[in-house]
Design a protein around this nucleic acid. Structure first.
Lengths: 257, 257
DNA sequence: TCCGGACAAATCCTATAGGATCTATGAAAT
DNA sequence: ATTTCATAGATCCTATAGGATTTGTCCGGA
């Protein structure tokens, strides 16, 4: 006679204050409230969130591993500086390595994956439409400039989230937890890359077309097609980021001599 | 009159207590002082190391990301359970993905890499000889059994360290920091794998021969040879771990239904 | 004008204390 | 004998306090 349900604590949210603080700081970092290179005060965050420094400390140790913040002993944490061009190239190579392997492992795609990809792609298209609407709207003067800017940023974030969802669907079906973890770790870096791009999203049509090609490759009988489509997609993304925007800040990090 | 040298803190070790605690706990985990699944007490470690719980906490957050310990909110940390067979297979696939890519990127090898690999391989051979000596010595009764066992474990650890050094030399020359980080993250898992193998090292000759083949591939003019040699090596390691030891504990993790 | 040193404020880092939660032991009831 | 409940101990978690270090500012000298 067990009065408790058979699954008393398998699903319930069991997270300490540390996890809540982590998500809050992550939100701050992802919205770009603090500029790269700027200090991230432990006590300051603790005061801002009305908690003690201890959970803030634990959350920052976790964030340090993601690469979003860097730590210098006895000097505190800082928001990681923007990616330099060399790091960008390395990042895309790493992504290509992980995601093409995951795509190959997910081939042939089962119906569940095909359905998940179709759904994710539909959402991605919606977000893409909204990005285009907002960029057009910004020309009109219906809203205040800052309000228009806010909506535009919101649309861009939604777009990137749906983009990532698409890739995550494939990852989830590759059957390799280590590749999934690697991709997640790289994801934080990818976000830094996007944050470093000051201008809006200019390749909505291209990206959506490449995603569509990946779906069609999964639907085709050619078992080498999905991996090839994914490789092409990531290389094109890299090309657009590296070649079409050669003026991206190539700030070199000079160590103190 | 500046008594301090002109470069007072560019190279000197600038690490807080947290890093020292981290290394100490890592040492405890790697030597297997605590069995998998057993609890890792925060306060207990703090008392054992004569420090306060705060730095222990930070070190454990860091260790959690490596996968060596797992955390359950409000219930503390535990040593991660041994790898199941499925995880093993996934781990080898992930390693093959990362290391073959790194090998390809390190091709063609410059003289520095060739020299580094030759040196690392020489050390690896020495460690291999010592492993064979100690396993033979264990038959003789010159030392006490526990002393012989201790020497044997020490030789095995040295052997694994030199093995890893060999792979790290290639990683260092691939020019991609993200692949390096991925390989390091996987390294902790690989250690868990080795710790799960109760018997001694039985493939010294094979592993050394495969490493030698990788060196020769780097020296050959065929630019596809090194990657192929590395892929063959990792697949053979996986084969020996998965096929020759089919009796390894295949404990399945049943989630509570 | 530029450079170096001293003081003050802020920050990081560690230690200690107390409340909340979990685990284990043992007794009582069915 | 098995189960249920209650109590005690241990552990985790958070908050607060104080020492050590860094950083910013100001001032005097070259």
């Amino acid at each position: 006679m067990n009065a408790q349900p058979p699954i008393p604590r398998a699903d319930i949210e069991r997270r300490g204050l540390r996890d809540l603080v982590y998500e809050h700081i992550l939100e701050i970092l992802l919205t770009g409230e603090i500029s790269p290179g700027e200090r991230v005060s432990i006590d300051g965050l603790a005061r801002q969130l009305n908690v003690s420094p201890t959970p803030v400390r634990e959350a920052l140790v976790d964030l340090e591993r993601t690469g979003l913040v860097v730590r210098e002993a006895l000097r505190g944490y800082r928001v990681s500086p923007p990616l330099e061009r060399g790091q960008l190239q390395e990042l895309f190579i790493a992504r290509e390595t992980v995601e093409t392997t995951a795509t190959r492992l997910a081939t042939p795609a089962d119906d569940e994956l095909l359905r998940a990809l179709a759904d994710a792609h539909a959402e991605h298209e919606k977000a893409g439409d909204r990005v285009r609407e907002t960029t057009e709207q910004s020309n009109k003067a219906t809203d205040t400039p800052e309000e228009a800017r806010r909506i535009q940023v919101s649309a861009a974030q939604e777009y990137f989230a749906r983009d990532r969802d698409f890739h995550d669907r494939i990852l989830e079906h590759c059957g390799n937890r280590y590749l999934v973890k690697m991709s997640q770790d790289l994801g934080a870096q990818v976000h830094r890359l996007r944050q470093a791009l000051p201008h809006g999203i200019t390749d909505v049509a291209e990206a959506l077309a490449e995603h569509r090609a990946i779906i069609e490759a999964f639907a085709s009988p050619d078992s080498t097609a999905p991996e090839a489509a994914m490789r092409h997609h990531i290389r094109m993304v890299a090309h657009r980021a590296l070649v079409e925007d050669p003026q991206t800040p190539i700030q070199e990090n000079h160590e103190d001599p």
